[in-house]
Design a protein around this nucleic acid. Structure first.
Length: 328
DNA sequence: CGCGTTTGACCAGCGC
DNA sequence: GCGCTGGTCAAACGCG
């Protein structure tokens, strides 16, 4: 089963997701990467794919309005825009041609394997418990293919494999991956009754790239939100449905930003996002899955005024930095 | 003691 | 049917 061959390449710069850096983040863009599965046509595809280049603005096909929102200095992507169909079966949805890219996508990842994840054990709900008894009872397949959980995969450049997204995860497995020297780790949300899973693996092409795939929907608020984290949890996939999760995000080097003509904006943004603990968070409740930056916050829910419950970019991005979407 | 990680074993799906 | 591979389980272990 090799489904990783199909990759989408981007040439855009990426956010550097190392934790130690204190470089001010320059935030220019984001992308919407989640659409309802049915919208994408491929029900089995488990949703849509979208790519987000934190700095390069790679909103490939999901939400052009983002460009307006962020007043991106960059034009829409010139590089070959991947057809959504291309990624339907790919797991690594975006293998950057350059190390500078961060991409996200929902769904797809391992469409084939998904079927496995819809094992028989989970059909009566409480998949956790069911799964536990599975081994004992050995129900032996029923081949009833459960509907796929919403999935969301993205790639980050990080020195650490397991990015802190604010939720608590328990590692329940690790497997060597074929054609990759790096093992894949399996995590499950530790919250009871929350069956969200997460897979973390490093790209075999670029060991600095961490591919994280979320599956499922959190049924609870984000329990903790450590400092400086970036949440990339599109609501429609359920990852940000209640509380925004977060990933520690390393501010990228300035040069990621497109040349001098953007410097002014860059300065604006950097001055605003000067806090190295700035986080990128995809929208929370009642909001579209826009990624938004939030300031460091001690806990969930956020207490900062910047984190007012809009959960949107507007909550934190200065108005001059964005154009109001003017009602979509 | 509770929680999380490690790790070998087991299971299921898929291709040949 | 068999082997490969991905995904999961759960006992053992480590840590605070």
């Amino acid at each position: 089963m090799e489904k990783k061959e199909e990759v989408i390449k981007t040439e855009s710069p990426m956010v550097n997701l190392t934790f130690a850096d204190q470089i001010p983040m320059s935030f220019t863009s984001s992308g919407i990467f989640d659409m309802p599965c049915d919208q994408e046509g491929e029900k089995g595809g488990g949703g849509s794919l979208g790519f987000v280049d934190m700095l390069g603005i790679q909103d490939y096909y999901c939400n052009p309005s983002l460009f307006d929102m962020f007043q991106s200095p960059l034009p829409p992507p010139q590089q070959p825009v991947p057809s959504p169909a291309v990624q339907e079966s790919s797991e690594v949805l975006n293998t950057p041609a350059t190390p500078n890219s961060l991409s996200m996508s929902s769904s797809s990842a391992e469409a084939g394997n998904e079927e496995k994840e819809s094992k028989t054990t989970v059909e009566e709900g409480e998949e956790q418990d069911q799964a536990k008894t599975k081994k004992q009872l050995k129900p032996k397949k029923k081949t009833t293919k459960r509907e796929r959980e919403p999935r969301f995969a993205f790639m980050t450049r990080s020195e650490v494999d397991h990015l802190d997204d604010g939720y608590r995860w328990r590692k329940y497995g690790q497997k060597a991956v074929k054609n990759s020297p790096f093992p894949r780790s399996y995590y499950r949300c530790t919250t009871a009754a929350c069956g969200v899973k997460k897979r973390v693996e490093r790209s075999s092409d670029d060991r600095t790239i961490v591919v994280t795939t979320y599956e499922g929907t959190h049924t609870h608020p984000c329990p903790v939100t450590p400092r400086g984290s970036i949440g990339i949890m599109p609501e429609s996939t359920g990852f940000g449905g209640i509380g925004s999760s977060s990933f520690v995000l390393n501010p990228p080097p300035h040069h990621y930003y497109h040349q001098q003509q953007q410097q002014q904006q860059q300065q604006q943004q950097q001055s605003y996002f000067h806090n190295p603990t700035t986080s990128l968070t995809f929208s929370t409740t009642n909001n579209p899955p826009f990624p938004t930056f939030v300031q460091e916050r001690p806990s969930c829910p956020p207490s900062s005024s910047l984190l007012r419950d809009h959960g949107l970019l507007q909550d934190i991005v200065p108005s001059q930095m964005r154009k109001e979407p003017k009602e979509e």
